[in-house]
Simulated scan of single mutants.
Amino acid sequence: MIEAHTITHTKLSGLSYDAQRREICGSADRLGELYGRRPVLFRPPFGEKDTTTLRAVRDCGMKAAIILMHFRDQFVEDFIAALQGIKRAGLTPARLEDY
């Protein structure tokens, strides 16, 4: 499963709506052309987003902004902190395959 992550991996928060939309929709459009399936999930580079990012994600036809974690030395601590934050926010973790 391949999902979207922007064209140039730039920090999105603070950019204009048009700039964010180009990055987000552009990556989804290109992946759709290459693989015959347009992504439905999006993860902002560096995990940084603002309300403009969320609006652009929605307008680009995607369902969610997601968390991506890398396997680093502190992965276990990071994962536990993420799960605690998810719980505090009243959210439920799910597998990408379910979407």
Rank of each mutant, 00 (worst) to 15 (best):
R30M: 10
R88N: 11
R22T: 07
I2T: 13
L91W: 09
R72C: 05
F42H: 03
A94F: 15
R95A: 13
D18P: 05
T52I: 15
E77C: 11
L83E: 14
Y35G: 06
V40Y: 09
S27R: 07
H5K: 06
T92H: 10
P45C: 03
R95I: 04
I86E: 05
H70E: 15
Q20S: 00
L83C: 14
A19S: 13
A94I: 12
D18N: 12
R88Q: 11
P45A: 03
G61F: 07
A64Q: 12
A64N: 10
V57P: 07
G36K: 07
Q74Y: 11
Q20Y: 05
G85D: 06
G85C: 14
Y99Q: 06
T52M: 11
L12F: 06
P39K: 08
M1T: 11
Q74L: 05
D78M: 12
Y17F: 14
G26T: 07
L54A: 03
G26F: 00
I2K: 12
A81K: 14
F42T: 00
A64L: 14
A28S: 09
T92L: 10
E97Y: 12
G90R: 06
F75T: 14
D50Q: 05
V57W: 04
S13F: 03
V76W: 10
L83Q: 14
M69G: 13
H9C: 02
A64Y: 14
L83R: 13
A65H: 08
V57I: 15
R30C: 04
F46I: 02
P39Y: 03
M62Y: 08
L15W: 00
T8A: 12
Y99V: 13
E97D: 14
Y17A: 03
I80G: 00
I24K: 07
L96W: 09
I80C: 05
T6H: 02
C25A: 14
P45N: 00
R21L: 15
L54F: 04
R38Y: 08
G32L: 02
G85W: 01
D50P: 07
A81V: 04
G61C: 00
P39M: 03
T92G: 01
P45F: 07
P39Q: 05
V76N: 07
K87R: 15
T10M: 10
L91T: 02
I67R: 04
A94Q: 10
H9R: 07
D18Q: 15
C60I: 04
G26E: 06
D73F: 10
L15S: 08
A81F: 09
I2D: 08
G26C: 06
